[in-house]
Design a binder for these strands. Structure first.
Length: 209
DNA sequence: GCCCGTTGTGCTATGGGTCA
DNA sequence: TGACCCATAGCACAACGGGC
């Protein structure tokens, strides 16, 4: 319950608006997303509290960015509010149409920087999509940069766009992949990616739940 | 006055870091 | 390795303000 630690799979996010460099950065906060989802569903904090099992004050603090929810809390939020977890990181759509599309111009994805990766989330306007595509610059150079395996629900496809990476997985030998190489794997298996080229590698990732 | 949201305080539980 | 300390998350509770 309390004091839980979690692997930062989808960390707090920023928006980049340049092609190669992150310039003006706009923060996308989980709190704001949570509040939008809750109010769209016409739920009070009290009602949301009952549905998620989290205290009303806790929800208020999350919405006002006073505390950062752990992965477990985000799972409770997703379950209680009947949403997919990635929706906490994407702006909610009021209604969905069929035949929809989402164009992300070069460098205009939602960026989110960690100590190991700089993610640029693509096609973020869809709140209920089955895949989550994102481009990542790989800062990590060793397993120690992560401390533990990254694992989560679903499957992932990875394509190397620039540089050279090493894919480390729980059950296989480390594999070196260069530009154009790709891999599809079960994301519940412990995995992580490190750069092995002189420059930080850039990869395309597609996560499907 | 009631409902709702926000804020502040104090407490507990837990994990990480440090040190002997 | 175990003890200790500290930071953090989460909870309950109370108080306050705004809107109806």
């Amino acid at each position: 319950m309390s004091g839980q630690k979690s692997v930062d799979v989808y960390p707090s996010m920023v928006i980049a608006d340049s092609q190669d460099n992150v310039k003006a950065i706009e923060k996308i906060t989980i709190g704001a997303q949570l509040k939008a989802i809750r109010t769209n569903n016409k739920l009070t904090l009290e009602e949301a509290s009952k549905r998620t099992g989290l205290a009303r004050s806790t929800l208020s603090k999350i919405e006002n960015e006073q505390i950062s929810p752990t992965f477990t809390v985000m799972q409770k939020l997703a379950t209680g509010l009947d949403i997919e977890l990635p929706q906490l990181f994407t702006k909610p759509e009021k209604k969905q149409a069929t035949g929809r599309r989402d164009i992300t111009l070069s460098g205009s994805g939602k960026s989110h920087v960690t100590s190991t990766y700089e993610h640029e989330l693509l096609a973020t306007q869809f709140s209920n999509k089955k895949m989550m595509p994102y481009k990542s610059r790989v800062y990590a150079r060793s397993f120690e940069d992560f401390g533990e395996w990254v694992r989560h629900e679903g499957e992932e496809f990875l394509l190397v766009l620039e540089g050279e990476i090493q894919l480390l997985t729980e059950f296989y030998e480390a594999t070196t992949l260069k530009k154009g190489d790709n891999v599809y794997y079960d994301a519940t298996m412990g995995h992580l990616v490190i750069s092995v080229s002189e420059e930080d590698a850039v990869i395309l990732w597609v996560t499907a739940s």
